[in-house]
Simulated scan of single mutants.
Amino acid sequence: MTAGTRRRVVVHPDGGVLAEAVASRLVTELLDAQSVRRPVHVVLTGGTVGIASLAALARHPARDAVDWTGVHLWWGDERFLPAGDGDRNETQARDALLDHLPQLPPANVHAMPSADAAPTPEDSATAYAAELARHAGDGAAVPAFDVLLLGMGPDGHVASLFPGHPGLDVTGVPTAGVHGSPKPPPERVTLTFEALAAARQVWVVAAGEEKAPAVASALGGADVHETPAAGVAGTERTLWLVDAAAAGDSVPGSGSGDGPR
């Protein structure tokens, strides 16, 4: 982590409670951010808990307190598949949340170009990099994301940055095409570590006993080539939001579930 970055681990009883807590926390952060700046930029994630968190946000009683016209939504990675494919993070996010937000302008939803809109993952990555730059500050490659949500696989991967894969060492660009992913589908598009590092807050969300070794490895400071999740941190705050099963027997610096803040 960078100097001055705060890291906190919050443990919730199970995946269902975790998803509800992430939704409540996100509503609070969006309202807080909108009180001091606009627009607000959020990076979404897929995965079981990530999508469950978006569904929880869709039914949250304070959902409409957020001014969604001032929120821009991005993705940390995407499966390089045709638009509307059920395995795309975008498709799942639309079903879980975005289609339930009539205030959200379509232009504020920044999906990674699909396989029927770009010839290759690299073309999709280049187009997405250009889109990110259009909304970034002067001289920046990406916006200063207010909240960046990341799921984590049992192997410790985040976004589509997998252990031992070339994407871990990509520098100088905010996005990269991925080939030969160990998790299907093999072709993907991902933000790079440099883009992830632009976020004010990074929230790593993980649930399930199968995640416990990777959680322990990442929090223990493993090399990113072994456990990529060890290499992510927000410029202001880093939150590990996990359930008891993912926390395992011992999580350094763990706390208890304590509501949205």
Results as ranks from 00 to 15, higher is better:
157 H>R: 13
152 M>F: 08
184 P>G: 11
94 R>Q: 15
157 H>Y: 14
135 H>D: 06
183 K>T: 11
176 A>V: 09
124 S>M: 12
97 L>R: 09
147 V>M: 05
139 G>D: 02
120 T>N: 03
106 P>I: 12
117 A>T: 15
169 D>P: 07
176 A>E: 00
167 G>R: 11
123 D>C: 04
134 R>K: 11
113 P>Y: 02
172 G>N: 09
119 P>R: 12
182 P>E: 05
138 D>R: 15
131 E>I: 09
93 A>C: 08
170 V>E: 02
117 A>P: 12
111 A>K: 09
178 V>P: 01
104 L>W: 07
116 D>L: 13
137 G>L: 07
155 D>N: 08
144 A>H: 13
141 A>Q: 05
144 A>V: 12
173 V>W: 01
147 V>F: 04
108 N>E: 09
185 P>I: 09
148 L>I: 12
167 G>V: 13
133 A>W: 10
164 G>C: 14
116 D>Y: 05
139 G>I: 15
151 G>Q: 04
128 Y>I: 02
161 L>M: 03
124 S>F: 03
187 E>Y: 05
119 P>M: 05
154 P>K: 08
178 V>Y: 02
104 L>S: 06
107 A>Y: 04
130 A>G: 07
136 A>P: 10
149 L>E: 00
146 D>T: 06
161 L>P: 01
92 Q>F: 04
179 H>I: 14
102 P>E: 08
98 L>E: 00
144 A>K: 07
169 D>M: 11
131 E>L: 14
93 A>E: 05
140 A>C: 12
125 A>D: 02
136 A>K: 12
176 A>C: 04
